[in-house]
């Protein structure tokens, strides 16, 4: 009898699958390894024809690494520490707002019985299709009217009104929480707010974590928003700072560019390692229809 292991279990097939997946893994990780390797080399060796992962002599790797990362961190014009702080401020305010408001709206779309619910939910789904460029120019003008151009506000304030995808995600999750729980609470005279705050939210921690995580990554990633709304270089976020670092008259050597990129990538990889389960769960829900 064949074991219930999965669609395939012949040894040769398994070996080939392993070989393929191992090769694919190497290919997928190579760019990041190369980024790290370049970031720990002197410029003259980064720009050379040979393939090497460690500088020559290899023992100098720490000296070069320290030097490169220090010069990125301490650059006088492109001020990464400052951009990191700006990014974290936007992320903190944005994540708090996004998680809370999306949950509120998702509650309204899953737990409150009203007639407009279906229509609103449809609208939520529909807005997910709108390409950002359509909003780009008028949003700039609206933020200009609000006096937000040149401040960090446009980057986090909209998050306080919820995000379509996150509302969708949380609504799907709330639907899986048994109705009996809040009906019992209703009979005890609890208001919607109490039910939301005391019952639904505590039970939805995994889903809320996904929303928070995704929004954090979104903020970390966002390039177009800062590009359009920020004018003062001291308010730049990391994504914009990195681009600036590359573009300013094309004056940046490869090793430093890679060090700067590594600085931007590493927190996310660390976060992933610490929350792989939440991540995978969150991404998998994206595939729900």
């Amino acid at each position: 009898m064949r074991r219930q292991k999965g669609p395939t279990s012949r040894p040769l097939t398994r070996l080939m699958i392993h070989a393929t997946l191992a090769l694919v893994s190497v290919l997928f990780l190579a760019p990041l390894v190369w980024m790290l390797a370049t970031s720990m080399m002197p410029e003259s060796q980064a720009a050379s024809q040979s393939i090497r992962l460690l500088p020559d002599p290899p023992s100098a790797v720490f000296t070069h690494a320290k030097e490169n990362y220090k010069s990125v961190w301490n650059d006088r014009t492109i001020r990464f520490p400052l951009y990191l702080r700006n990014t974290l401020i936007v992320a903190a305010l944005g994540v708090a707002g996004m998680t809370l408001s999306s949950a509120v709206v998702a509650y309204g779309l899953s737990r409150v019985q009203w007639r407009g619910r279906g229509a609103v939910f449809f609208l939520v789904l529909a807005t997910m299709m709108i390409p950002f460029p359509v909003l780009m120019v008028p949003l700039y003008l609206i933020f200009r009217e609000l006096g937000w151009i040149g401040t960090l506000t446009p980057l986090w304030a909209p998050a306080w009104f919820g995000g379509a995808f996150n509302i969708f995600l949380l609504r799907q999750f709330f639907m899986t929480i048994p109705r009996e729980l809040d009906e019992a609470a209703r009979i005890d005279g609890c208001s919607h707010w109490t039910i939301f705050w005391r019952i639904i939210l505590p039970l939805s921690k995994p889903a809320l974590a996904v929303v928070a995580l995704f929004h954090f990554i979104y903020v970390w990633n966002d390039f177009v928003g800062p590009l359009i709304y920020l004018t003062d270089q001291d308010q730049y976020t990391l994504a914009l700072g990195l681009q600036l670092y590359q573009s300013q008259a094309g004056n940046t050597p490869w090793n430093l560019l890679m060090a700067a990129s590594a600085l931007m990538v590493s927190p996310l990889v660390l976060l992933f390692v610490l929350t792989q389960r939440t991540f995978v769960r969150g991404v998998s829900t994206e595939g729900l229809k």
Binding site: L82, Q235, P267, L274
Partner: peptide, 20 residues
């Protein structure tokens, strides 16, 4: 994760500020 969060919050609150 907690340490990371606290560190980030600390940096956001007390991190470097613009000379401006």
């Amino acid at each position: 994760l907690g340490a990371l969060g606290v560190g980030a919050a600390g940096f956001a609150l007390f991190g470097p500020s613009a000379p401006k």
